[in-house]
């Protein structure tokens, strides 16, 4: 099979970009989408043209590095898979395929199809953790976690941090990403002490990074490679409301080193 690619090319953040059209060489339908790009890039390089920059690493749907919008959809045509798990058999001979980067104000472009998603890390820095020093943990089986909670926490914890939810959202909101972390930790007994502080800090940082608000269109859930559920956003909203009612956490009198 062969396809025609319309690819976003942009040398750097400060130079204008444009779509360029490339004809693929003969392809095997069992190739992954990224292997198809590898093959196209080898051709470009051999012709003396600059290869298309795109992000990737694990190529098995777990690291969250790959980040393409394929025919208008982050991570391409299929539900529940990342770009790297998209195979050419999902396309037909002669198809024209449009390939763009994940676009959002909070994701500045680096080159061609590569964007900078460090804003997501900064949200995690704000509170995406349980404060436990190395060496200070009790025996693991002293903390009982009902299987249902552990399973639900795992459903949320699977987030690969790719940012497809942001790219799909018309408001470029990162609510699903934040909700996944907040729910994962909030569902576990270990996560209770910092539960309200965490949700407030993370949501505030999300706003500060320039991500938009959530209007519950569900486009994030639809493109999430790990099919993380919108229910987690509802869960986070409840926690956030509770955190606002409780106000800033106050230290208990007399605590701390004397």
């Amino acid at each position: 099979m062969k396809v025609t690619l319309k690819v976003w090319r942009q040398k750097s953040r400060n130079t204008p970009g444009e779509f360029k059209t490339y004809e693929s060489p003969a392809l095997n339908p069992n190739m992954s989408f990224l292997e198809m790009l590898d093959v196209v890039n080898e051709e470009l390089a051999n012709r003396g043209e600059e290869p298309i920059a795109f992000d990737h690493d694990c190529r098995e749907g777990i690291c969250g590095t790959c980040s393409l919008v394929i025919d208008g959809k982050p991570h391409g045509p299929h539900q529940g898979v990342a770009t790297c798990q998209t195979y050419m058999r999902s396309f037909k001979n002669g198809d024209e395929i449009v390939v763009e980067p994940f676009r959002a104000r909070a994701f500045p472009l680096v080159k061609d199809l590569v964007v900078d998603r460090k804003a997501l890390d900064r949200i995690q820095h704000a509170g995406g953790f349980i404060s436990v020093r190395t060496g200070s943990a009790p025996d693991a089986n002293n903390i009982l976690v009902p299987k249902e909670n552990a399973d639900l926490a795992m459903d949320a914890a699977q987030c690969i941090g790719c940012g497809a939810c942001v790219a799909a959202c018309k408001n470029a909101s990162a609510m699903l990403f934040v909700a996944a972390k907040v729910s994962h930790l909030g569902l576990l007994p270990q996560g209770q002490p910092e539960r309200h502080r965490r949700v407030k800090a993370m949501v505030d940082q999300m706003d500060a990074e320039g991500f938009g608000g959530c209007t519950v269109t569900g486009s994030c859930e639809a493109v999430c490679p790990k099919e993380i559920s919108l229910d987690f956003i509802a869960r986070m909203n409840r926690d956030y409301a509770a955190a606002l009612i409780r106000g800033e956490p106050k230290p208990i009198a007399g605590s701390g080193a004397g």
Partner: peptide, 22 residues
């Protein structure tokens, strides 16, 4: 053995049995 304790305390959602044990 300390690793498992450390990770469980951090909130790593290890697989559990119905009784809540690992």
């Amino acid at each position: 053995v300390n690793i498992i304790d450390q990770c469980a305390a951090q909130g790593v959602p290890f697989a559990r049995e119905y009784g809540g044990l690992l």
